[in-house]
Amino acid sequence: MIEAVAGLAPPDWPNAGDEIGAQSFGPFDSAALTRYAIVSGDDNPLHLDPAAARAAGLAGTPVHGMLMLSCFEPVIMGWRRDLFISRFSAKFLRPVLAGEGIRVLGRVLRSQGNPRPELILRLTARGPGDSLVILAEAAVLHKSVTPLG
């Protein structure tokens, strides 16, 4: 549990239904997957070896799910820098293959004001053909709530 210190929502605290502007990432080519494998340590051959991807039933090497998930935080913090992401959960619904990109977008599902300003965000990543590839939800607090946020 987060030690909630009473915070004050700023006057422009978002409302339910507010949109979080879409942002595009990629395309993630095989060089990008290799670089991510190096910095993350995730060198699962599924992402790097076309033969392993084919053996798993995929048409090409899939982009690391966590590489795509890493794109969500810049979207949230680019929208508002006064937030602390307290919870974030995501389901990977379909693969995005090397050479393809994603578009991350979201909206405010619920908004709570003082004394503990909190937003519940629904976020998605869409791939080629606008297909839904990641469905995510985040709980974000105004930074005034968290002593160490």
Binding site: M1, L69, I85, S86, S89, P147
Partner: peptide, 14 residues
Amino acid sequence: LPVHEAQSFAYERS
């Protein structure tokens, strides 16, 4: 091979 299906994070402090 393991394939990533879902992920969650819960932070109490940065």
